[in-house]
Design a protein around this nucleic acid. Sequence first.
DNA 1: AGGTCGTAGTTGCGTGTGCAAGTACTCTAC
DNA 2: GTAGAGTACTTGCACACGCAACTACGACCT
Lengths: 163, 163
Amino acid sequence: MHDPLDDDRLTLAGLLIESSVGLRAQLGRRLEDECGLSLQWFDLLIRLARSPDHRLRMAELAAQTVLTPSGLTRAVDRLEEVRLIERTACPSDRRGAFAVLTDEGLRRVRTAVPVHLVHLEEHLTGVLSESERSQLKELLRKIRDHVNPEARPSGELTRCPQP
Amino acid sequence: MHDPLDDDRLTLAGLLIESSVGLRAQLGRRLEDECGLSLQWFDLLIRLARSPDHRLRMAELAAQTVLTPSGLTRAVDRLEEVRLIERTACPSDRRGAFAVLTDEGLRRVRTAVPVHLVHLEEHLTGVLSESERSQLKELLRKIRDHVNPEARPSGELTRCPQP
DNA sequence: AGGTCGTAGTTGCGTGTGCAAGTACTCTAC
DNA sequence: GTAGAGTACTTGCACACGCAACTACGACCT
């Protein structure tokens, strides 16, 4: 008979979480050491770098990342303190604020990206074949879209502005 | 030409992390609401429940989970406070300690597991076919083993004691 | 215009976490 | 046996996070 403590679905969820947490730990450590950026910061900066005018509304940024609005406020505070981004008012909605990459911020991401790609190759894509990578991408996209549909415009859709 | 800001590997890593974080948020909320257990607690309890005598050394538990030894100490403190687990001394090594599931603890996991499986079905395995599930499992296992080899004895290997 | 409801972002508070240093023990070598 | 190195946790500290409450503004209805 089948023990629910060993259900296959538990294993799958466990693997997903362990992979992600493990990967984040590795990538974060290396990025910190070699570029002085936390993964959190890198994530925010690269999202801004990919956006038109290197700017995004706070709410959009919060939706795309792992942070709640509250967490984002503080993360942006810290990034502003070290002059990697700036807040600017939104002219059409005085409640709103844009987070804008500074020149220094842009420079930092640009130099960090190739370094990070090496780490990625080492810790993630290096163990997968070309076809495994695309398989995995499709599977994860299904899960992500189901679990966090808000995040859709992130990254892989950057080049496809909606009709 | 190819903009490194839109590299495919970044997308893949992003999807992995977003899926996992999103999934944890969903699962955590529901488990909290319906069973009064955080995902963290559930994870610790189920690992103990699967172990011989419902006990594990602190270090083993730390290696299997997402926590550092320091984090684990505190997590176990909290679980001990609510009598779901107990610490017992290790007879062969007086530095060491076992975390042992209490009867109440075992009862709680046993009732939580089926509930959690429903959530899992809803948020994760429900969007995947049988074959996609096993594909995903293999891919993630590769990544997990590469990124956190320490965690190997967890879950899916429970039934395969090493020779 | 004025009232109500919704939204964008910020802040107080409590909590969980990792890092580094500390404690207590074991193991190895001489 | 005893110094020194290593191991198994634990604790002090600082920090990042989420939640809920708050402020400030927009949108809509009458």
